Amino acid sequence: DEFHFHWNGRDIRVRGDSEELRRLIEAIKRGELSEEEIERAIEILER
């Protein structure tokens, strides 16, 4: 699976399928994380 979302003017695409990944992306979409937490998560996910 590939998750695709927009954040902070960026087009983010992440491959993978796990419950943890889904929860993280939902939290990002709901605005539950700080900008710094989101940046760090995206860096890890894009590897």
Rank of each mutant, 00 (worst) to 15 (best):
E26N: 11
A27E: 10
V14F: 07
A27D: 10
R13I: 15
G16E: 09
E32Y: 11
G31Y: 06
L33N: 03
R40N: 10
R30I: 08
I38T: 14
E20L: 08
S18N: 12
E35F: 15
R23N: 14
E35C: 07
L21C: 03
E26Q: 10
G16M: 04
F5A: 00
I12V: 07
A41V: 11
L24I: 10
R47Q: 12
G31E: 06
I42P: 00
I42H: 02
G31I: 04
E46T: 12
E19V: 10
E32L: 11
R13Q: 10
I12P: 00
L33P: 04
E43C: 08
E20N: 09
E2K: 02
I25C: 04
E32M: 12
I25F: 08
E32R: 07
E36W: 12
I44R: 13
A27K: 15
I44W: 15
H4F: 06
S18Y: 07
E37G: 14
R40P: 03
E26F: 02
D17L: 07
G9T: 01
G31C: 06
G31D: 06
H6L: 02
H4P: 00
E26P: 01
E39W: 10
E2N: 10
I25H: 04
A27V: 08
A27P: 01
N8H: 06
S18E: 06
G9V: 00
R15N: 14
L24M: 09
H4K: 03
E19G: 08
A41L: 11
R23A: 14
N8Y: 01
E43G: 12
E26H: 13
E19H: 12
K29Y: 14
F5I: 02
R22L: 13
I12H: 03
S18I: 08
E43S: 10
A41N: 09
G16A: 11
E39P: 06
H6S: 02
N8C: 07
A41W: 13
L24A: 03
R30Y: 09
F5R: 00
H4G: 03
G31P: 02
H4R: 02
E43D: 14
E20Q: 12
I28K: 01
D17P: 10
W7V: 09
F3M: 03
L24G: 00
A41R: 13
I38G: 01
R10D: 03
W7D: 02
L45I: 10
L45W: 06
H4M: 04
L45H: 06
E20W: 06
D11V: 15
E39F: 12
V14C: 01
D11L: 15
I12F: 08
A41Y: 10
G16Y: 06
I28M: 06
K29R: 11
R47D: 15
R30K: 15
E2S: 04
E26S: 11
E26I: 11
H4S: 05
R47N: 14
L33Y: 08
R23T: 12
L33G: 03
K29Q: 10
A27M: 14
E35G: 14
D17E: 11
L21N: 15
E37R: 06
F3G: 02
R30L: 11
R30W: 08
E32N: 09
E35Y: 15
F3Y: 12
I44M: 14
S18C: 05
D1F: 04
R13Y: 13
V14P: 03
L45M: 11
I12L: 03
E32D: 13
E37F: 10
L21I: 15
L33I: 12
R47H: 13
R15C: 02
I38A: 05
E37D: 14
R23I: 13
D1N: 09
R15D: 13
R23Y: 11
E39A: 10
F3I: 05
I12K: 00
H6R: 02
E36T: 15
E19M: 09
E46L: 11
E32A: 12
S18M: 07
F5P: 05
I44P: 04
W7S: 03
I28S: 02
I25D: 06
R40C: 01
L21R: 06
L33T: 04
I28Y: 05
H6Q: 05
L33R: 04
E32F: 11
R15Q: 11
R13M: 13
G16R: 05
S34V: 10
F5M: 01
W7N: 02
R15G: 13
I42R: 01
R22T: 06
E19D: 09
H4C: 06
R13H: 15
H4E: 07
K29P: 02
A27S: 10
I42D: 00
L24S: 01
E2W: 04
R23D: 11
F3T: 02
L21M: 13
E39Y: 12
E20P: 11
I12D: 00
H6I: 04
R13D: 06
R40Q: 13
E37T: 07
V14W: 09
L21K: 15
I42K: 02
F5D: 00
S18A: 09
K29A: 10
R10Q: 08
R23V: 11
E2V: 03
I38N: 02
E39L: 13
E46Q: 10
H6V: 03
R40L: 11
A27F: 08
H6Y: 02
I38L: 12
E35I: 12
R30P: 01
L21F: 09
E39S: 13
N8V: 02
I42E: 01
E36D: 13
R30T: 09
R15I: 12
H6K: 01
I42N: 01
E46A: 07
S34H: 09
R13F: 14
G9M: 00
D17H: 10
R47W: 02
R10F: 01
F5G: 00
F3A: 01
S34P: 08
R22N: 08
G31T: 03
S34D: 11
E20K: 07
R23L: 15
I42F: 05
I12W: 04
L45N: 03
D11F: 05
K29W: 08
W7Q: 03
D17I: 08
E2L: 02
H4T: 05
L45G: 03
S18F: 09
L45D: 02
F3K: 01
W7K: 01
L21Y: 06
E35T: 15
I42T: 02
E39V: 12
L33H: 05
E2P: 02
I25E: 03
H4V: 08
D1P: 14
E46Y: 03
L45Q: 03
H6T: 03
R15S: 13
F3E: 04
K29T: 11
I38V: 14
L45C: 01
H4W: 05
E20R: 05
R15H: 13
L24Y: 05
F3H: 04
D17T: 10
R13V: 15
E20H: 09
L21Q: 14
S18Q: 08
G9F: 00
E46H: 08
